[in-house]
Write a protein that binds this DNA or RNA. Structure first.
Length: 595
RNA sequence: CAGAGUGUAGCGCAGCUGGUCGCGCGCCUGCCUUGGGAGCAGGAGGACGCGGGUUCGAAUCCCGCCACUCUGACCA
């Protein structure tokens, strides 16, 4: 084991990194475990635990062991390099924050239970920072007064705290996690958009360097109070977010906000007869009524009652569609909506749950644009055990027509004429926002223009879940035996496995490890007195991208064996002559870093 | 916050018709073995989550609390 200060040759930013280049397993702290921990809730969680990368000490609170920390540091250094390249400046704000700043913007209350609060000995209110808009805005308002000082982009890599209702998935959703957050400050909206675009490019470079398959999607700006925003979603089956993407153009959006091509009206072949009421005893759900009346779900008008800004509102979507609460809230101009409870439904419609409908409803009604085109529709009669059939929008009920449903697989793309939408699952790895003057206006972060007039600074904010990325990468790259690290963030670049204790083998191992170290290659050398099977299993588990096997057998047949972790068949390992091994391996590492 | 469940050796679990706790893996020692988590022999390791109650006696039954997990709500 030797530690030294090195300048990594691949790092164009001339950053000096501290890296222990070579590590002998017998001297290391890599406690792998054979049996799966019972509480592992995702592939990445399982493998990070088994591989000895992390340990849990509380719900959503993890320790990083040496391998885990190396990966975390590598992700951080890629993020730093690209942020610096984009002209952002690193700062560090405290994790422990006095309550005053969040009180200033109202988020002390808005964050509610998600904020981890504490008191100091004098009884003063504090919290651990879940994000730092207020703090950075305060820093900037105290120091920046002139348009000459703008634009600026400041970022930090900090530990963040959120009292998640339910942490899960290991590092995917924690209460304490590492995040890179950047904040841009511009004189106007156009400047903010330019800053936003720079971050979009930087993020693309970051995720590309990590070799991830991801998609940039339109996103809900939510309570951040911004206008433009997009998410970087890493595509994995286990992802908790859903996104819709066009199969022929580059339209992609989080399902929360995804749109579909406007539906075309298909007039009924025959005129719809007048309304009539039918008895539907004890059948309330769409599936039940559909079976009872022998009518397909797409003829139904599903009527849901919501509480929006203190008012009861009816939202109507087609029976085969799902209502989208974010779209509904936006259509109503409120920040959020909540499903009405049974009591409120009874009071508003006069019927118990399952029999609500827009016909004759006294309150405000919003109908989805697809539901508005339903002919001879079927809906609740606002009377227990009765439905109404042959309902026509406009003729039989009045409602505001809006897009309030979630898109579904196969819907037409809203952007192009021929494409249709596919639904994917993803993990949000990054999010970029134009915030506007939401925070600067509230906190009076202003600058003077060249005429001496005062304006609020126009802001943007940009987050990357650094610790989440460690887990996300494993979610995307794993097989039945373990992790498959991309070279750029692997804990070590090369894993040397010594088979047997022959003097010739031990000598060859030591010599190769020393040569690799000299060439700046990060190498983990399994020098343990263990059976080969144990070493191979551990090597597959921790997933270092290149494995070098040195044994008597290989040496006899001409050299050492080189095998990428992605190659499952050991017999396909490449035989490299001993005297050229270090050179070939170092070159391979270099090649894998750039692809 | 609502519903469900689990806390017993480092990890995974059994024991729960009350009688002071076992198994597998891991760990230690020795022998043997060495190209995909070997084998044999011996060994160490436990206030059975915490507190109270019932009982001659509680891991086991009862009450309270705590922690954790799952499903939902929530998630810049």
């Amino acid at each position: 084991m030797r530690c030294q200060w090195v300048r990594s040759p691949r790092d164009k930013c001339a950053r000096v990194c501290y890296l222990a280049l070579a590590m002998r397993w017998s001297q290391a702290f890599i406690p792998t475990i054979k049996e799966a921990p019972a509480d592992a809730t995702s592939v990445s969680h399982l493998l990070l635990m088994r591989g000895g990368f992390i340990r849990r000490i509380g719900a959503g609170i993890y320790e990083y062991l040496p391998l885990g920390l190396r990966v975390l540091h590598k992700v951080q250094s890629i993020v730093r390099a690209e942020m610096d390249r984009a002209g952002a400046l690193e700062v560090l704000m405290p994790a422990l924050l006095p309550a005053d700043y969040f009180r200033e913007t109202g988020r002390w209350d808005v964050f509610g239970d998600n904020l981890l609060r504490l008191k100091d000995r004098k009884g003063g209110d504090y919290h651990l920072g879940p994000t730092h808009e207020e703090i950075i805005t305060d820093m900037v308002r105290r120091e920046i007064r002139s348009y000459r000082d703008l634009p600026r982009n400041l970022y930090q890599i900090q530990t963040k705290y959120r009292d998640e209702p339910r942490p899960r998935g290991g590092l995917l959703r924690c209460r304490e996690f590492t995040m890179k957050d950047a904040y841009s400050f511009d004189v106007d909206e156009a400047g903010a958009l330019a800053s936003y675009e720079k971050m979009r490019v930087a993020y693309t470079r970051i995720f590309d360097r990590m070799g991830l398959a991801y998609r940039l999607v339109q996103a809900d700006s939510g309570s951040m109070g911004g206008s433009t925003s997009a998410e970087f979603q890493v595509l994995v089956q286990s992802g908790e977010d859903f996104l819709a993407a066009c199969d022929s153009c580059d339209y992609a959006a989080n399902l929360e906000v995804a749109e579909s091509r406007a539906p075309a009206d298909q007039p009924a072949a025959t005129a719809t007869p007048p309304l009539s009421k039918v008895a539907t005893p004890n059948v309330g759900t769409i599936a039940e009524v559909s079976a009872f009346l022998k009518a397909p779900p797409d003829r139904f008008l599903k009527s849901l009652l919501y509480l929006a800004g203190g008012e009861i509102v009816m939202a109507v979507v087609r029976g085969d569609h799902e209502l989208n609460e974010i779209k509904l809230a936006r259509a109503l101009g409120v920040s959020e909506v909540a499903l009405a409870n049974e009591e409120q439904i009874l009071k508003a419609t006069g019927a118990r749950t399952g029999f609500a409908g827009p016909v004759g409803f006294k309150g405000k009604v919003v109908v989805d644009r697809a539901a508005a085109l339903v002919h001879a529709g079927i809906t609740g009669a606002n009377e227990g055990d009765f439905h109404i059939i042959d309902v026509e929008h406009t003729r039989d009920y009045q409602a505001e027509v809006r897009d309030i449903r979630s898109v579904a697989e196969g819907d037409g793309c809203p952007r192009c004429a021929k494409g249709s939408l596919k639904v994917y699952r993803g993990i949000e790895a990054g999010h970029i926002f134009v915030l506007g003057t939401h925070y600067s206006a509230k906190m009076k972060a202003c600058y003077l223009d060249d005429k001496g007039a005062e304006h609020p600074i126009v802001m943007g904010c940009y987050g990357i879940g650094v610790s989440r990325l460690v887990a996300t990468t494993i979610e995307q790259f794993n097989d039945t035996d373990g992790m498959l690290w991309p070279m750029s963030i692997a804990p070590y670049q090369v894993h040397v496995v010594g088979v047997g204790q022959d003097a010739a083998v031990v000598d060859a191992c030591n010599k190769l490890v020393a040569e690799l170290e000299q060439r700046g290659v990060e190498v983990l050398f399994d020098d343990r007195v263990e059976r080969p099977g144990v070493k191979f299993k551990d090597a597959d588990l921790i997933g270092i991208p290149l494995r070098v096997t040195i044994g008597a057998k290989g040496l006899a047949s001409g050299g050492i064996e080189l095998k990428p972790r992605t190659e499952r068949d050991s017999k396909k390992a490449e035989i490299v002559p001993v005297d050229r091994a270090a050179e070939v391996i170092a070159e391979r590492v270099r090649a894998m870093l750039t692809t």
